[in-house]
Amino acid sequence: MFETKIRKVGNSAVMTLSAELLAILDAKEGDTLFVVRGDDGSLKIMTHDPSVAAALEAAEIVMDENRSLLAALA
Rank of each mutant, 00 (worst) to 15 (best):
S51W: 10
V35T: 13
K44I: 10
H48C: 05
L22I: 00
K28E: 11
P50C: 05
A27E: 07
M1L: 06
S42Y: 12
T32A: 07
A54T: 03
G38Q: 12
N11P: 00
V35W: 05
T4V: 03
G30T: 06
L69F: 09
L17N: 08
E57Y: 07
G10A: 02
E3P: 01
E3H: 04
L70I: 15
F34M: 03
A72W: 13
V52Q: 14
L21T: 11
I45K: 01
A71N: 08
G10I: 04
A27H: 08
L70W: 01
A23Y: 12
G10V: 00
A19Q: 12
A13D: 11
K5E: 06
K5G: 00
A54V: 04
L25Y: 13
L17F: 15
I24R: 15
L73E: 11
A74E: 14
A55L: 12
L43W: 05
E3Q: 03
D26R: 13
V52W: 05
A55N: 09
L33S: 01
L56V: 07
K8V: 04
M46T: 10
S42Q: 12
S42W: 11
E60W: 00
S12A: 11
A53P: 00
E20Q: 14
P50N: 05
A55V: 11
V35N: 03
G30Q: 10
G30K: 03
A59I: 07
S42L: 08
D64R: 13
A74G: 15
G41N: 10
S18T: 15
D31S: 15
V9M: 07
M1Y: 07
A19K: 14
V62Y: 14
A13L: 14
A19I: 07
I6G: 11
M1P: 00
V9C: 04
A72D: 10
V9Q: 13
V62M: 12
E29Y: 14
I24A: 14
D40Y: 00
L43C: 08
K44R: 12
V9K: 09
S51L: 12
E3C: 03
